[in-house]
Simulated scan of single mutants.
Amino acid sequence: MTDTKPTLPERPYFSSGPCAKPPVWSPEKLDTRVLGRSHRSKLGKQRLQYCIDLMRELLELPETHRIGIVPGSDTGAFEMAMWTMLGARPVTAMAWESFGAGWVTDAAKQLRIDPTIVEAPYGDIPDLNAVDWSNDVLFTWNGTTSGARVPNADWIAADREGLSFADATSAVFAQKIDWTKIDVCTFSWQKVLGGEGAHGVLILGPRAVERLETYTPAWPLPKVFRLVSKGKLAEGVFKGETINTPSMLAVEDAILSLEWGKDIGGAAALRARADANAAALNAIVEARDWLGHLVTDPAIRSNTSVCLTVEGADEAYIKAFAKLLEDEGAAYDIAGYRDAPAGLRIWCGATVDTADIEALGPWLDWAREKLSA
């Protein structure tokens, strides 16, 4: 064994976990005019609308779909959708990792709507073609804690009676989404954009808007969930008039990432960066017999949140492995999610440079050797 450490690439910001900042990010680039100002000021509304417009452009979102900034990160956005729209039809709740399991719990134990539960183990997804689209269907597009994703939207019926609810927080800006198949989509800025937490984004297609305007749930709704006023959609929410007070610093941070994404070539460029990062990590895995993919089928393997198995590793080993790399400043937050099988989780989203993924390989070898000694 050699104690020689690999070389760290030069870069202003880097993390192998979610929240990796874009390569050009720096505090000096933030527009600070709006900080300390009311979000209801003319400038505040303009910046919120600008953020929404940039997201629409980069997501290639059609004008048929509304997009709003809401409280509570992706969790708040998805629960807002569940609490305001579920109950009108039977529900199918799908889970193949911990966040999908959370939506199952919400539907079954909190809303008590007796959903049909469809599950698959970590590393796999259920038979998508068996889904009954007379039901409303809840699913995660990309399983952040398992690395398993739906391959496309072909399995979503074009003539569906129910609504499709997609938690796409680690898929947007990195994977192609067919918006004609999506009625409700949620995400947060801290995944593929490398942004700050606290705020979620809620996207509503026309069928979701129709549901909101024609159906009143049986349970009470807290103020931060209310999207309807006098029987009509509260359109202001989707024009930058947020339900509660947002952090304008977080908004400016998101704008910076969105402008960077636009400058490098938009949606196609962001997807290409994530694909390149995932390919670089796959090359590292294939070159080492002690590493493997938790998701063995490449067709359903994430290109953002890639989960790896480590031969002979248990939770304590992974914790020590990740700490060695963090102490050296080589990688951060790469231990698998607490509910997932023991392993590594490497973030390959668009804000990470492929050179950083490539540089990680020797560091993984170094940590393996250190623990073996």
Rank of each mutant, 00 (worst) to 15 (best):
A107N: 06
L193M: 12
G76N: 13
Y332D: 08
C185Y: 01
P12F: 12
W219S: 04
A355V: 09
T144R: 12
V352C: 11
K323T: 13
G205W: 04
G194N: 11
F99E: 05
C348W: 00
Q49F: 03
S38T: 13
G100N: 07
S98I: 15
N142Q: 05
V295F: 12
D178M: 00
N152C: 11
R226Q: 15
L58K: 03
A174D: 05
H65M: 08
Y332W: 09
R11V: 10
I318C: 10
Y332T: 05
L212I: 07
P23E: 03
G36N: 08
L163Q: 04
T180N: 12
D127I: 01
L48S: 01
K262M: 10
G205L: 11
E252G: 07
S257I: 07
F139S: 00
V295N: 06
S98A: 15
K262A: 13
G361V: 12
P362S: 12
K42W: 02
S134W: 11
L202W: 00
G36W: 06
K191P: 00
L43Q: 08
E210R: 11
D31R: 14
L227Y: 03
A350G: 05
V34Y: 02
V251C: 09
W290L: 14
E315V: 11
S73V: 07
G100P: 03
C307T: 04
W363L: 13
T351L: 04
R37P: 00
W290H: 10
P12Q: 12
E210L: 09
L308I: 03
D124E: 12
Y337M: 05
R338Q: 09
I67K: 02
E369A: 15
T144Y: 10
E259C: 06
G194L: 08
V251S: 07
D339M: 15
A322D: 13
P298W: 13
I182A: 02
T7H: 15
R33F: 02
A268R: 15
G361C: 11
F321I: 02
L294I: 11
E252F: 01
A320I: 14
L249Q: 12
L371W: 06
R207E: 08
E326C: 09
F165E: 01
E311Y: 00
D333T: 00
N142P: 00
